[in-house]
Amino acid sequence: MIQSLAHRRPPITLRNRDAERLGQLAEVAAQRHPATADFLAGEVARAKVAPDSAPLPGVVCMDSELTFRDDSTGKEKHVTLVYPPEADVEAGRISVLTPIGAALIGLSVGQSITFETPSGERRSLTVLSVSEPN
């Protein structure tokens, strides 16, 4: 089971359309990817939901380009957060239906999240920069 460690869960914000679509995605994926779907559903449930027209500078939204740091290794990655059909790891397009994608959604620049992967590994990620989707 993927778990966000409660004492490390920063507040997150999602646009209304993303919250609705991500909630539906989590439901559909529950049988095939139960741990990640459950984690994603929990993140959607705890998010502050903003109107679709609200500017969310510095917040990781769907189709945002972002740079994050894996706090265990210190390595930085530049990626675009996408829905599963658009995912292409080699092109830096990571799915929101992965443990890392689900952890990053809704975070703001400077925020960190610690979570446990399905294999029991503890990971911590910090968002360094975000470009709003076009």
Rank of each mutant, 00 (worst) to 15 (best):
D18I: 10
V60S: 04
S119L: 12
A19L: 10
L5V: 11
F39R: 00
S131H: 07
V130I: 06
N16T: 14
Q31A: 14
A37R: 06
L66K: 02
V89H: 08
P11D: 09
S124Q: 12
P84L: 15
G42Y: 01
A91T: 07
R122Y: 06
V96N: 00
S72D: 15
T13I: 09
E76N: 06
L125A: 03
T114N: 00
G92D: 10
S4L: 02
V127C: 08
I2Q: 08
H33S: 07
F115S: 00
V96F: 03
D63R: 15
R123M: 15
I94M: 08
S131L: 10
T13C: 07
V130F: 02
E86G: 04
A45V: 01
Q3C: 01
A6C: 07
L66Y: 00
G58Q: 09
G92N: 11
R8M: 04
P11F: 07
P99G: 00
R9T: 03
L22T: 06
E27S: 15
A103W: 03
E116W: 04
G120L: 14
A19C: 12
G110D: 08
R93Y: 02
L22M: 07
C61G: 13
V79N: 00
G42K: 00
A30N: 04
V89S: 12
Q111K: 01
A41H: 11
S95N: 01
P133G: 03
E90H: 08
Q111V: 00
L56H: 01
I94N: 03
F115H: 02
H33K: 14
I105T: 03
L104K: 04
V59I: 15
L81P: 02
R93F: 09
V28C: 00
S95C: 02
R9A: 13
H33N: 12
V44P: 04
L5A: 03
R21K: 14
Y83D: 13
L40I: 03
D52Q: 09
D88N: 06
E121Q: 15
I113E: 01
V59C: 05
K75C: 06
E121M: 12
P55Y: 07
D52G: 08
S72E: 14
A50Q: 05
K77Q: 09
L56Y: 06
S4G: 09
S72T: 10
S112T: 06
R8N: 13
T117A: 13
P10E: 01
G58E: 09
D70M: 06
